[in-house]
């Protein structure tokens, strides 16, 4: 299934709103993993539109499940959860304050969050277990997990990948936010991951490579019907810091607080972009 032009436009506007919200959240909260937040926003925007879920009935047994394995990119996740009514605006405003509901990593105490994450290399295994339980129960819900790319140096990911493949978990979709950067620099310098496509395929996944900022490509990949009974892997090539000009493709923006001027400039750029777009 393809995105209609109108639908795509709605999602692009939503993604812009989430970008601004995320950057403001980090600014007011005085810190956050801004680079990976901004690289994942288009993926999250399409995913939350695509998945079966309902903030009015968050435990609905028929829902799809999402795990943010790269839990440090929580600010964008919180922003999208707020868009869908899981989180109150006030909770976002209190981010970074003492005893705030929203911490630096997601926790199931927060409505809409399905897994406690933060330590890297856990999400794919959790997703595998969840998908396996659903398969054993003969349920059709889908499990989506978003990992980072630097995170893939954790061997636990590959143990989980072997398991997902062994159990033919076609209800599992592993999305990789491939922004090529981690806190110390390029992933290929820190710990080379390439050829990632071949690796995931060798581990038994049906792998697709998409532009992680192209909403249509992401949507079509999520909607892939023929994965030959295999679990699916979507390598989404992204830009770290996407949308905040001063931060784009800069490893030092892995965790950094923007200045008020930088936030205002980004909002201005987004407003102009929106005008052009409209």
């Amino acid at each position: 299934m393809k995105l209609t032009t109108e639908h795509k436009k709605e999602l692009m506007i939503q993604a812009m709103n989430v970008r601004v919200k995320t950057v403001e959240l980090i600014y007011h909260g005085k810190g956050g993993h801004i680079g990976g937040d901004l690289s994942e926003i288009d993926i999250l925007t399409v995913l939350f539109d695509y998945m079966k879920h309902d903030s009015g009935d968050p435990d609905c047994p028929e829902r799809d499940h999402f795990i943010l394995s790269k839990g440090h990119s929580a600010e964008a996740y919180y922003s999208i959860l707020e868009e869908y009514g899981y989180i109150d605006r006030q909770d976002l405003d209190e981010f970074g304050s003492f005893r705030a509901k929203l911490g630096g990593h997601p926790n199931k105490k927060i409505k809409g969050v399905e897994a406690n994450t933060g330590s890297l290399g856990h999400g794919l295994g959790l997703a595998t277990g969840m998908a396996l339980a659903l398969k054993l129960n003969q349920c059709n819900n889908r499990i989506f997990v978003l990992t980072g790319d630097g995170e893939l140096a954790e061997g636990s990911n590959w143990e989980a990948a072997m398991s997902a493949s062994k159990f033919k978990l076609k209800n599992l979709t592993w999305i990789i936010d491939r922004n090529h950067l981690q806190i110390s620099g390029l992933t290929e310098d820190v710990m080379p991951l390439e050829n990632l496509e071949q690796k995931t395929k060798a581990f038994g996944f049906h792998t697709l490579v998409v532009n992680g900022h192209d909403l249509e490509e992401i949507y079509e990949a999520l909607d892939t019907q023929d994965a030959a009974g295999k679990p699916m892997c979507i390598i989404a090539n992204t830009t770290k810091g996407k949308g905040l000009a001063c931060a784009e493709n800069k490893a030092e923006w892995h965790h950094k607080t923007p200045t008020l001027e930088q936030v205002e400039q980004m909002k201005k750029n987004m407003a102009e972009y929106r005008k052009e777009f409209a």
Partner: peptide, 13 residues
Amino acid sequence: QNAVTVSAGMAAM
């Protein structure tokens, strides 16, 4: 390690 995490995923369901 994977066994514990996968088990936790199943338990979550």
